[in-house]
Each structure stands twice: as C-alpha cells, then as structure tokens.
Design a protein around this nucleic acid. Structure first.
Length: 651
RNA sequence: GCCUCUGUGGCUUAGCGGUAUAGCGGCUGAUUCGUAAUCAGCAGGUCGGGGGUUCAAAUCCCCCCGGGGGCUCCA
C-alpha cells in the first residue's frame, strides 16, 4: 500500500510570475552535456558548476511573461531573495528548467530574463547560473527542512477555493531524475453527505460533527489544538506495551511482552480476515536493489524517504511497503481471467520509512512499522470498483473488531474528476455506508497512480489525524511492472490493481486504541482494551496465603489469560494495581468463595469511575462469558509469569 | 531537516554556582489483610554524553545524543 499526499501551496503570492522551484541544497552541481537548437553561446567556465549550501532556483519562463519581462525579473528576484533570506544562504544557483512549464516563452526572452535576474541578484548574493538551452546532468542534495523546497508557480487567475498543488518530490540523498517536474494540479475539497450532496467546506454546518471538523482543520487548514505530549506515549510505557529504543534509530520501537502479545493478536487477526476473503499470504524481501530497472523507475516516480544501505557494491533500500515484492511476484506469474480477482497479502514486519525527525511521536508515526499490505488484481474497472466496495466494508468490519468504531474515525475519499463524473452513485454510497458526512478531495486530472482512494482517519486526543485503513485503485503499476493476464479471447491484458491495508499500521491501531481510551479517561469514564486484546483477561486475587491454592484451582478452570496476584500486599492495593493495568475481570478469593465455590467478579467494562460493578457467578459462567466475547478471534497465552510475585518490571 | 523546550537512581521528581531531595518501585523484616496505596529498615545516583568558564558546575557557555512541541512533510 502506498499512500501519497500532497503539498498544498495556497495562492498567497499576488501577481505571480513564471515558474520557480526553489531547493535549499547542501550542494548543487551540473555539467553541460550537449547543446540544443536554442542553446545560448557560453564560455568554458560555464560548462560546469558547483555551489555549496546554495539556494537552487529552477526556472521556467513562460509565454505570458513576454508581455512584461522587466516586471517578471523584478518579482522573480524579490521572490528568490525572500526565500534566500529565510533559509539564510548567500549562494544562489539559477537553473533554467523547461520541464516546469508546458507553456514556455521564446528562448530569447528566457535568456534575457535569466541574465537580468543573475545580474540583479549578484549585487547582494554569490550567484551562479547554469546555461540555457543545453542538456545538462545535475546532482543536488536537498536539505529537507520545511523551507528547503518551495514552489512558486501560481497562475494569475487563481480562483477562490482552489489551491494550487505541487508534488513534494524529494529524496534525502542525492536526487537526480526524481526532480522531473510534477505539473501543478487543482485540488478541490468538499464535504459529501450520505444524501449525495457536495458542500463547500465553508458552507457546511459541522454541528454534531466535531470530529470531522477537527479532521478537516487538520487536513486542510493545518490547525492545531493544544500543545502537549500525546497521552498514548505515557500509556504505552505505563502499560508496558512499547518503549523508545535509544540504541536504535528514532522511530524504531521495542515491544515488551504485553505489547508483543497485543501486536501479535492484531497481526494474526488482520491476516486471518484477509485470508477469509481469499487472499494468499506471501512473504517478500525487506530490501531491494535500488538499480533494478523497474524499481528504479518506481523510486523515481515515488521518491520516498527510504533507508538505504550499501552492501558490497550494491545500493539497497529497505522496503516502505510490500508493493515491490508482490508486484515482482505478479510479474512472473501466469494468470488468466479465471484467476481474477487475485489477492495477495503480506504482513510487513517491517516497513521502513525514513520520516523526518520532527514528525515521529510515540506509536503514531514510526520509521519501522508493521503494516498488512494486500493487493488485488482485477479484470477491469468494473471488477475493481466491486472489490473496492467489498474492501471498504471489510476495513470497517476489521477496525470495529479491533475496537475502533465508525464513530471513532473520519472518512476521506479522494478521486479524479473524471472518475467522480462516471461513478457518482458509487462514491455517494460510500458515504451512505458509514452514514455520516465525509471529506472528499477531487483533482482535475490524475496526479498519482490512483484514480480513487479512501482512508479512515483516526482523530486523536490532540485533534491530530492519522490514516488507518486505506484502499486505492491503481491504474499505473500493472504497466510499470509488466503484470498481465490472459483474457477470454486469449489476449494479454493489464489488470487494475487495488492496494489495501485493511487496518493500517498495527502500531497505529494500538496508538488509536490508547488515545481513544485516554479520551475516555479524560471524560471520567473507565479506560480499557478490548477483552481479546487485554494481556491479562482475568486477575485472581487471593485475600491471604491460605486462599492461594483455591485461587489456582479457579485459574485452571478459565480458558483465557489468567494471572494470580500472590504478592504480599493488601487487597486494596492489589485491586488498585489491577485497575491501573486495565484488567477486564478481577476476582477476589477469600473465605466466602472457599465455602460457596462461587466467585465475585469486578467487571471493568460495566464499571464507572469509583463505582465498580461486581457480579457473583460461578467460574464456569465467567469462563463462558469470556469465551463468548472472544469467539472467533485469535488467542495467545499470557506472555508473563502467571504469579505476579515472579514477574519482573520492565519500566 | 529547521526552530524551540527538555533530559537528576528503574519510574515520578526537589535543587538551578559550594558534588544531591523525596515519593513510588526493589530488597529485608513485621503484618495474612475483603475491593483505589499496611508499617519499619536497607540498598540504589558517571545529575544524558563530551568539551569549556570558575578556586568550585546538576546548576553558566558550546557541541553531540535522546525525548516533547511547532514548522514542514507523510508511499
């Protein structure tokens, strides 16, 4: 599953001119290869050049600029200076880059503008200019801070409500071909109601849809609510689920036994569900050759932030999804239409993405994470849409079982205008399925490899949103990977590919559950994990030593994760401990139980803060209650010593 | 990656120029206990790491590392 979002640059640069792509780079170097017909005459000194710590300005002068080149130079210079000021550099590389525009000016005007800009900037900066009209090879190393990549390419007649969107093509290391300009595309944001109405964001009444409001704010306006650490960070440690590992790279977590258990259950669950809908489980390599012809093309199109490693003389990168491995398998397969739709799933442990340092927090965004990644090869668009619908519903079902209900997430649906025009009823039905308004984003033309995509976004205690489940309809990669099947007529055809992560990253599911419970606790409710995911499902608490033997007998009657708090603390203290660990069922064993054989169970999910709900029942009744609650779900035994007195502390 | 805040025994933390507080946890002993913390004693600290200023640094300055927040970005 690949997920590509957009860098939105709003039209707040009045009277814009030409096309500028500004990159603050550690270095930029170029070398002239060959002249074109429009090449300017140059001296040898201009045939190659290099600048350290430079603001590289890729420029395309456009047809409209011919009207008033003088004004264009003035504004261009001012724009460049503004950015140079911001990134605090005194070196500027002016680099003519025709690919930025589909509507270029004459070469005469272009050279005129470029040299004029060079002259003017030279008064205050150290400027180099790459020659116009030559084929050049260049290498650039982008710094990667927020201001290091800016596109100033806004049309004059910028309509309201329409933002200009530029791709955020970048690579942490050396970038070469990856800079192939993504042209600008328009992005329209709307709210789609279950009734099929499209509302402007400003006109939509968010009353009763607080979470959607937060999601929209986060997605479009980038608003933030509060400034504090997300509550799940404390919880993941206190509950001994996961922790930072300073001995590794940032964003690579350690999981303690309880965390490993939860993760393992979730992993098994998602894979099992995928297999139920017909997916074949596979396993593919973690690292790939960066120079593999197909992968190279792929990387050029999706210049992600990968971890890269060198082994012998090979440049390898760590996978950031399972697409590579599965598509390479698909490429070698012999398939007929009878095999379609064909599903494959891999639980990637791990997928690696070298996210920027400042965006890593707790379990929300990691550099190494576990993601179920399923791909479905479809016969045609009709089948793809049917599958999309099926998987949309599967994702709802899976998240719900994990403990994240429809009310806990917000839906985003993104598509091209063409796709929407042809499939209005289908898309509306997606909103109807969740029976609440959803955020939609529409593009005038296809900008990425997909024509339709949805995500379920969890909105956390701090009003930040992150994507969980997603499905995308990919119309590009069958071609890139040369994947084909034979149709009824015996002809080779390309399948349409669905990318699906049924739950999203497993760590992110845990993060969502913890944040959800933290929000509950803030409201004064009692937090807990779903019973099937609770490391301890039943805790038995003998009042004194003489009740221990009976406690063990009760434990043996329960077919779930039971432990016994045999520590020499008061009952009150041990009760408190069980509560702090969110144990769903707590059983105190004393003289009374010894006599009657019946037990008193504190049921957490029915308790209110400071008002525990207790129920008398037989051990068998408790056992069948838990069996019913966890039926059909993965099970693993308790990951720690049954006797609490024998347990070490991890934190 | 940039800006900014932050880092004291396993955890939470006091101290903010004279080498260190307390609680929890751990250990030992007493207590054998009925639903949110039983009592007492003991052990445990390169004050994130390195460098500098100073007679003297946990405390001031610089660099590095980890973490939080913001920017930005997110396949």
């Amino acid at each position: 599953m690949l997920n590509l979002s957009l860098q939105v640059i709003s039209g707040n640069f009045p009277g814009e001119i030409m096309q500028l792509l500004l990159i603050h780079s550690d270095y930029i170097e170029y070398e002239v290869k060959k002249s074109t017909q429009v090449a300017e005459a140059i001296e040898d000194s201009m045939k190659c050049g290099r600048l350290e710590d430079a603001l590289t300005v890729f420029i395309a002068v456009e047809k409209e600029d011919e009207v008033n080149p003088h004004e264009v130079v003035k504004k261009g210079v001012s724009e460049v200076e503004k950015v140079a000021e911001q990134v605090k550099t005194s070196n500027i590389m002016l680099y003519p880059y025709a690919h930025l525009s589909a509507n270029l000016s004459s070469s005469k005007v272009a050279v005129q503008v470029l040299t004029a800009m060079e002259k003017e900037l030279s008064e205050r900066y150290f400027v180099k200019r790459a020659p116009f009209g030559w084929y050049k090879a260049f290498k650039i190393s982008c710094k990667g801070h927020p201001l290091s990549e800016l596109s100033r390419s806004i049309s004059v007649q910028n309509k309201e409500g329409v933002s200009t969107v530029c791709s955020a093509e970048e690579k942490p290391e050396v970038v070469s071909e990856a800079l192939k300009a993504e042209s600008t595309a328009k992005s329209y944001w709307r709210i789609l109601t279950p009734e099929g109405e499209l509302h402007e964001i400003e006109d939509f009444d968010f009353k009763g849809y607080d979470n959607l409001r937060k999601f929209v704010d986060y997605e479009i306006a980038k608003k933030r609510e509060v400034e504090r650490a997300p509550p799940h960070v404390e919880l993941m440690r206190r509950l001994e689920i996961a922790d930072y590992e300073p001995g590794s790279d940032s964003g690579n977590m350690r999981f303690y036994p309880k965390g490993r258990l939860i993760k393992s259950l979730l992993e098994n669950y998602v894979v099992d569900e995928s297999i139920k809908v017909g997916a074949m489980e596979v396993e593919t390599p973690l690292m790939y050759n960066m120079n593999h012809p197909t992968l190279k093309k792929y990387l050029d199109r999706f210049p992600a932030r990968q971890y890269s490693i060198e082994s012998d003389k090979r440049q390898l990168f760590l996978r950031f999804a399972a697409c590579f491995g599965q598509f390479l398998i698909n490429h070698d397969m012999t398939m007929s239409y009878k095999n379609l739709p064909l599903k494959m799933i891999e639980l990637t442990r791990y997928s690696f993405r070298k996210e920027q340092r400042g965006e890593l927090v707790g379990l929300r965004r990691l550099r190494a994470f576990t993601m179920p990644d399923m791909h479905t090869l479809c016969y045609d668009m009709e089948q793809a849409i049917a599958q999309f619908d099926e998987q949309y519903n599967m994702c709802i079902r899976i998240l719900n079982q994990i403990g994240i209900e429809v009310k806990d997430f917000e839906v985003a649906i993104r598509f091209t205008r063409d796709f929407y025009e042809e499939n209005k009823a289908f898309i509306t039905n997606l909103a109807r399925t969740v029976n609440k308004p959803v955020l939609v984003e529409m593009w005038d033309k296809r900008f990425f490899y997909f024509v339709l995509k949805f995500e379920f976004n969890f909105v956390d205690a701090l009003a930040k949103a992150s994507a969980l489940s997603t499905v995308q309809i990919d119309v590009e990669n069958a071609e890139r990977y040369d994947i084909k099947f034979v149709d009824v007529a015996g002809a080779e055809k390309r399948p349409i590919i669905l990318h699906c992560s049924p739950s999203g990253a497993i760590e992110r599911c845990i993060y969502s559950l913890l944040e959800k419970e933290a929000m509950k606790a803030e409201r004064g409710e009692v937090p807990m994990l779903p019973v099937w995911l609770s490391p301890t499902q039943v805790r038995i608490l003998p009042v004194s030593e003489k009740h221990l033997e009976f406690a063990k007998q009760i434990a043996d009657k329960l077919h779930c994760r039971v432990d016994i708090d045999d520590r020499e603390d008061t009952v009150g203290k041990r009760i408190r401990e069980a509560g702090r660990e969110w144990v769903p069922y707590v059983v105190v064993i004393g003289d009374k139980e010894l006599e009657t054989g019946r037990i008193n169970v504190t049921i957490r999910e029915e308790s209110q803060a400071n008002r525990p709900k207790t129920m008398e029942m037989s051990p068998e009744e408790l056992d069948s209650r838990i069996q019913a609650q966890t039926a059909g779900l993965p099970f693993r035994p308790i990951p720690l010593a049954k006797m609490l007195s024998l347990r070490p502390k991890f934190i």
